[in-house]
C-alpha cells in the first residue's frame, strides 16, 4: 500500500492556487464596486464658495471615501461568502482539513485585501484624470505618490489593513452563522450595541482614536484581524461538513 503524505504547507499552497483561480469572479465584482464608487464620488463630498474681489472661488473636495465605503461593504461580503455552504463543500471536494482550509481562506483574503487596498488607493488617480473632462474645473490639487512616497505607502497600508480587518470580521461572522443561525441575531445586536454603549465606544476609541501615529493604528488593525481569524479557526475546527 502506498500512502501519499502531503504536508500542511503543500496543501495550503495548492488550495490558495486553486481558490485564487476559482474566486476570480470576486475580483471582477471588486472592480465593479470601485467604478460605482467613483461615479458617486464625482460630485465631491463637500464644497465651499468664497468671493474675493468679484472673483468667485469654489473649492470642491473630492475624495475616494465613497469608493472606500463601497469596498468595505464588498470586503465584509466576501469574507462572509467564502464561509457559506456551497464554498465550504466545494473546498472539501479536494484534499484538505479544517485548518488548511481556514489558512488558505485567510491567505486568499489577505491577497484580495492587498489588491483591493492598492487599487482603491490608486483610484484616486482615475478621479484626478477624469474630473477635468466632465466638470468645469481649472485646477486639481492632490497628493500623489511622488510628492509624498512614505505617506502614500502608509496610507495604502492603512487601507489594506482596514479592508483586511473588515473581511476578517465578515469571515468570523460567516463561520459563526454557519455553526448556528441564531448567531445572526447576536451579531446584529453587537453591531448596534458597539457604537451606542459606553463599553463599545471605549473599544472603538481604543482602536481608532488613541493612536500616536498611523503606523500604530496599522499594528492595531493587524492585531484585531489576527484575533478575528483565530476565533474563526477555533470555532470552525469542530464544524462538520456535507451533512
Amino acid at each position: 500500500m502506498f500512502l501519499s503524505n502531503s504536508t500542511l504547507g503543500e496543501v495550503v499552497r495548492t488550495q490558495v492556487k486553486f481558490k485564487m483561480n476559482a474566486y476570480l469572479g470576486t475580483l471582477v465584482s471588486l472592480v465593479f464596486v470601485q467604478l460605482l464608487g467613483l461615479v458617486f464620488s464625482m460630485n465631491g463630498t463637500s464644497s465651499m464658495s468664497t468671493n474675493i474681489n468679484n472673483t468667485d472661488i469654489q473649492v470642491v473636495v473630492v475624495s475616494t471615501d465613497t469608493v472606500f465605503i463601497f469596498v468595505a461593504i464588498w470586503a465584509l461580503f466576501i469574507g462572509n461568502v467564502i464561509t457559506t455552504k456551497g464554498y465550504r463543500n466545494s473546498n472539501l471536494s479536494f484534499v484538505t482539513n479544517s485548518f488548511s482550509n481556514n489558512l488558505s481562506n485567510i491567505i486568499v483574503l489577505i491577497m484580495m485585501s492587498v489588491f483591493a487596498g492598492v487599487t482603491t488607493f490608486l483610484s484616486n488617480n482615475i478621479l484626478r484624470t477624469v474630473l477635468p473632462l466632465f466638470n468645469n474645473v481649472d485646477y486639481v490639487k492632490s497628493v500623489s505618490i511622488i510628492d509624498d512616497p512614505l505617506g502614500s505607502i502608509i496610507n495604502m497600508g492603512l487601507l489594506i489593513c482596514l479592508i483586511l480587518m473588515i473581511s476578517a470580521g465578515g469571515y468570523l461572522w460567516g463561520t459563526l452563522v454557519y455553526m448556528h443561525k441564531a448567531y445572526m441575531f447576536l451579531l446584529i445586536v453587537l453591531i448596534i450595541a458597539t457604537p451606542t454603549t459606553k463599553t463599545g465606544q471605549m473599544i472603538l476609541q481604543f482602536i481608532f482614536v488613541d493612536n500616536g501615529s498611523l503606523l500604530f493604528l496599522i499594528v492595531k488593525l493587524i492585531g484585531v484581524s489576527i484575533v478575528l481569524f483565530v476565533l474563526a479557526i477555533v470555532c470552525s475546527n469542530r464544524l462538520e461538513v456535507r451533512r
Binding site: L3, N21, L24, S93, N97
Partner: peptide, 20 residues
C-alpha cells in the same frame, strides 16, 4: 490531512466551484 489525501468519497453531494 493524511486521510484526506489518501481517500475520497464519491457521492451526489460532491460540489465544485461554479467558476470552474
Amino acid at each position: 490531512l493524511r486521510v484526506s489525501a489518501n481517500s475520497i468519497l464519491v457521492d451526489d453531494q460532491m460540489s465544485f466551484p461554479d467558476s470552474l
